[in-house]
């Protein structure tokens, strides 16, 4: 039994979640403050992967990063980086694909905190950064946890985008969801079943852990 696809899936999900946390926190904070047309447009773009067929997203990423022209060619020439049919490409596609799951919950949680909380901190002479780290973040812990776990779980479940941009290269881009599909194509139902069961078990445990944690341990202190 080759467990590489499972390992690849977990690695992809972990790297994606970590990078998205770094990107998502400041973006969510910025989106949570005030309204402008630009913000609404950006939020719409971030939300698009929720409703767009993954194959469409994958198709455009494939075109954009093709090493034959445009950005792909430039990246290839300047940095010797190729996103198409590589693990890096999977990470990039996953970041775009799972972005709404990270940014959505954090943004709404930040919006629900009363404005007076930040104002109180500012009046004590604290910078926006200090306020974010010491006051805002600690008070949205449940949503933060939800965002992290959902992003991780959603990346585990990717199929269309990954297939389009990564293909099905064993040990490089063949993640578990693709291995399931591939096994079924080859009538190897046993292998498909093992991969499926492992994915099912991991995601079930993750989702149930969030529910339990949010209910008993980290109930929002503002409720």
């Amino acid at each position: 039994m080759d467990l590489t696809p499972i390992y690849l899936t977990l690695k992809l999900a972990a790297i994606t979640t970590l990078l998205l946390l770094v990107i998502g926190l400041p973006v969510a904070w910025w989106l949570s403050r005030g309204r402008s047309f630009f913000k609404i447009a950006l939020e719409a773009i971030i939300t698009m992967p929720l409703v767009l067929p993954p194959s469409v997203l994958g198709f455009y990423l494939l075109l954009a990063f093709s090493p034959l022209h445009g950005i792909g060619l430039w990246l290839q020439k300047t940095f010797d980086v190729q996103f198409v049919f590589s693990f890096k490409g999977l990470v990039l596609a996953s970041i775009i694909y799972s972005m709404p799951f990270m940014i959505g919950p954090i943004k709404s949680a930040l919006q629900q905190l009363p404005a007076s909380l930040s104002q109180a901190s500012y009046s004590l002479g604290k910078s926006r950064w200090q306020t974010f780290v010491k006051v805002l973040l600690p008070n949205i812990k449940p949503s933060l946890l939800t965002a992290v776990v959902l992003t991780f779980a959603h990346t585990l479940g990717e199929f269309g985008v990954v297939l389009m941009i990564g293909g099905n290269i064993p040990g490089v881009t063949r993640v578990a969801s693709i291995a399931v599909y591939d096994s079924v194509e080859q009538m190897d139902y046993h292998t498909a079943n093992v991969y499926s069961l492992i994915l099912f078990a991991i995601t079930f445990v993750l989702v149930i852990a969030v529910f339990i944690f949010n209910k008993y341990q980290l109930k929002s202190p503002l409720e």
Binding site: P114, S116, L117, Q119, A120, S121, Y122, S123, L124, G125, K126, S127, V135, P138, N139, P221, L222
Partner: peptide
């Protein structure tokens, strides 16, 4: 931050954490 006026909010605005 530069004005640093002490402010007592009507809703207290205490930090729950």
């Amino acid at each position: 931050q530069k004005r640093m006026a002490g402010f007592v909010f009507q809703d207290y605005a205490l930090f729950p954490n």
